[in-house]
Design a protein around this nucleic acid. Structure first.
Lengths: 132, 132
DNA sequence: CTTGCTTCTGTAGTAACTACAGGATACATA
DNA sequence: TATGTATCCTGTAGTTACTACAGAAGCAAG
């Protein structure tokens, strides 16, 4: 399938139609081609871009940060130094997020294991996690 | 230090004073003790809880989801089965987040490495990442 | 006792959606 | 070809999760 309407883009990505139009207004998605009757037409490139945006949002990045990540992709007007700095900055953020999620994952799995043995666990999340 | 005012809690956690009061209104933080003059007094338990909430927000969890995570900690009114189900659900979410972040991390590190060699990288994020 | 900092309540503004309303368009089928 | 239903359009208003003030009161040091 080559092109698609907004509804199919929404179905493929799990992003609401209204949100897609909102992203367009905000300049995060490019203004798409229109059909003769004025309907938005999207390509598979848009599907990939929107998937990327959607997952980033779910990972706690702001639209501003996502724009900055996407700028790495969109443009050749960046110097290598700028790309490098942005990349390192984002990579640092990401490493920290992974670290925190792994901590949570470990605690939750431990709790689930305790439950399997029939004990209501004395939940250790707050006491063992995120003290600073 | 045993107890503290809202300003110190804010400094320790990096959460704005207004946001702390907002969390109290929304029932995510318990209503704290008050001084004779009516000022909020917090304990180190509150520091830990707020740190947890703050990090969760940064990882893309909604306040509703955080409440559900905290319910694992707060209450003895849950059956083992309920705790287990909630735990498994959240652990699944977390594993997926880690998976996506690791993908991003890999791509960004590759880009940074290319930059180090003096090439502006033909950024592969969208093409290699998040196709579904 | 005054000067400066912190806290209080309350309201209003912002970011990122989300949910209609009211109307046009597309498309399958009788 | 008529018609019903699904999809799309623009525009506006509501929601979530903050964020920023205004104006008053408390507290701590000199």
């Amino acid at each position: 399938m080559k092109t698609q309407a907004i509804g199919e883009l929404s179905r493929k990505t799990g992003v609401h139609i209204e949100t897609i139009r909102y992203y367009e207004r905000e300049g995060i998605l490019p203004t798409p081609m229109r059909s003769a009757a004025g309907r938005r037409i999207y390509s598979d490139k848009d599907v990939r871009r929107l998937n990327f945006i959607h997952k980033c949002r779910g990972l706690g990045f702001s639209l501003k940060e996502i724009n900055s990540l996407l700028s790495l992709v969109d443009s050749g007007e960046f110097t290598c130094k700028e790309v490098h700095e942005l990349t390192i900055h984002h990579a640092g953020q990401i490493t920290e997020k992974i670290f925190n999620l792994k901590k949570m994952e470990g605690v939750l799995q431990e709790m689930a294991a305790q439950c399997n043995q029939g004990n209501v666990p004395k939940c250790p999340i707050i006491d063992s996690l995120f003290d600073a």
